[in-house]
């Protein structure tokens, strides 16, 4: 078998060593070696430079943020992050309302997006007919490609009026007794931001979840079925349980997106630097760290004002890092001691 396969190229191969021997001395040996040496070295240098540039960029950003926010840091110290008063007129700045806005809008987004994403992922991987599968996966991923300003526009012209005229009055009327749905139905505000963020985050979480769920071996599914499980029990025990580390990872990716999302949020959150009462938190306008930077940097004429904004940026940077570290720890705590996707 192997002889037959080698049979054809052999004659030509037998010719070539002779030729190569004659030709070889004609090539200047030295250049060849130095060319190889130079090529190797320069390639190595380029690749190393590319690799380290990632670290350098992060380092430089951090350095710039820290050095430029120095003024605000010296003026307010740690009080900057617990102060609730954001007053450019009197040059007094406290960033707590933005931290609050970012955290609450992102958590609200996850609260809405995670169940929907799980539903999307479960439907696509476990239930939908094969032909629809590709189409649906494509469509959910397409959602992620829509520019956020488009989401913002849609939210302003469709979502916000809907919230103002129908959803929020309805919630106040029917669920007002829970104490979570009080205040004025502005439309614009925390709820609108949370919903629009949720829509933007669903494709991220669901495609991640879909991928890890598809990766669960069918032997795992069959093992659960063979124990007399219903389809839902099979999904819970055979699929979700095995994929959970990856699903948590997807949720974290979504959180990262929600924390930093600027444009769409700025357009619908109302941009008011206030921490509202808990009962009115959902409907009240708010401000996020990203939206305050986007809104105010162009009018930040004073040095302290600009420095304060940059310090908000630094805080956003740090919050994002902390969230990711927490998330990573969470992933480790679930995956530790067991393979995330084991055996066939």
């Amino acid at each position: 078998m192997s002889n037959a396969a080698l049979g054809a190229p052999l004659p030509s191969g037998a010719d070539e060593p002779g030729k190569a021997l004659e030709v070889a001395p004609a090539i200047p040996k030295k250049t060849d070696i130095s060319r190889a040496w130079f090529g190797d070295k320069s390639f190595y240098a380029i690749v190393v430079a590319c690799g380290t540039s990632v670290l350098v960029i992060v380092g430089l950003i951090l350095y710039e943020l820290i050095s430029r926010s120095d003024l605000a840091w010296k003026a307010f110290g740690f009080k900057f992050f617990v102060g609730q008063d954001w007053d450019p007129v009197n040059d007094h700045y406290g960033a707590l309302p933005f931290v609050y806005g970012t955290v609450v809008s992102s958590l609200l987004a996850l609260l809405l997006a995670v169940p929907v994403s799980m539903g999307v992922a479960i439907f696509i991987t476990e239930m939908c007919p094969r032909r629809l599968k590709t189409f649906l996966s494509f469509m959910t991923e397409l959602l992620a490609a829509i520019p956020s300003v488009i989401y913002g526009l849609w939210a302003i012209f469709v979502l916000v009026p809907l919230l103002r005229e129908n959803v929020e009055p309805f919630l106040i009327k029917t669920l007002g007794w829970t104490g979570l749905f009080a205040g004025q139905p502005f439309g614009i505000g925390m709820l609108a931001a949370g919903i629009i963020l949720a829509i933007m985050v669903v494709p991220i979480i669901s495609s991640m979840a879909r991928e890890v769920m598809t990766a669960v071996p069918s032997a795992q599914r069959e093992a659960v079925y063979a124990l007399g499980a219903t389809r839902w029990e099979m999904i819970r025990m055979g699929v979700l349980r095995n994929a959970r580390a990856g699903i948590v990872g997807g949720v974290i990716l979504g959180l990262g997106r929600a924390l930093g999302e600027t444009m769409a949020v700025t357009m619908v959150i109302g941009n008011r630097p206030e921490i509202s009462k808990l009962t009115e938190a959902l409907f009240a306008p708010a401000h996020t760290m990203a939206s305050v930077i986007a809104n105010e940097f162009s009018e930040a004429t004073g040095d302290l004002y600009l420095s304060a904004l940059i310090e908000v940026g630094l805080a956003l940077f740090v919050v994002t890092v902390i969230v990711n570290i927490l998330a990573q720890l969470l992933v480790w705590s679930v995956t530790r001691g067991m393979p995330a996707r084991g055996n066939g």
Binding site: A219, E222, L227, G228, T230, M237, N242, R341, N343
Partner: peptide, 28 residues
Amino acid sequence: VQVRRRVGMVFQRPNPFPSMTVFDNVAA
């Protein structure tokens, strides 16, 4: 579901649940 409850199955390749302990595998 009722059928599989009465007729168990052992597969070609061992397929324990990797995210469960030995005990939980049996208890599943």
